[in-house]
Amino acid sequence: MAETTDLSKGLPSHPEKATLEGKNKFLGFWVFLAGETTMFATFFGTYLGLRNGTGSGPEAADIFSLPLVFIMTMILLTSSLTSVFAMFAMKKNQFKKMKIWMWVTVALGTAFLGFEIYEFVEYVHYGLGFTTSAFASSFYALVGLHGAHVLFGLCWISLLLIRYNKSGITLTNAPKFYVASLYWHFIDVVWIFIFTVVYLMGIGG
């Protein structure tokens, strides 16, 4: 509880873990992330099992565009760094700085999502619908699930930023911002394996 933390000197150096609630959120969120890891594994396994089942539809190497994936990867990697900066600002009680970095993260995430939608629309034009082939279904399910996570993360962080726009960093909202940033990093971790396993192996292997 907060009784055990000395608040008279100002914001504790780890505001996200200064209260019991914060500690519980932190621990619970890691359990959730471990569960998410396993869930994504089933989608990756399904994709890897079915990726050669293209039937009469287009193949991975025919449609994937390396430059587009490269841009998307750079955008998401950078957004991971900006949320790291936001958390450093939070620990130093620099509320304005934290808000700016978080909004930059949201902007980069939105750009990423825009590229992904553009990409999917493009693939549908190439004749790769969700039900075209086993490859198509498992591809859209895996990458779409990741995209849905990005969308959820964007809504989550934006809501937090709007809700706490004027409140400053408190012991109530610090754990919330912290787990949201952990979630954002996790999205990036999943993307590392998507660009490697789906795109690079689709083109090179």
Binding site: A2, L11, S13, F88, K92, S167, G168, L171, N173
Partner: peptide, 29 residues
């Protein structure tokens, strides 16, 4: 206590030593 939790802080409780550490951490990241 409940009020305390939603109260912003005027300053950070970090000592100069801690600030040096966190800035170093930020460079490493």
């Amino acid at each position: 206590m409940g009020e305390n939790l939603s109260q912003p802080f005027e300053k950070s409780s970090m000592t100069p030593e801690e600030i040096r550490k966190i800035n170093r951490e930020q460079r490493i990241q």
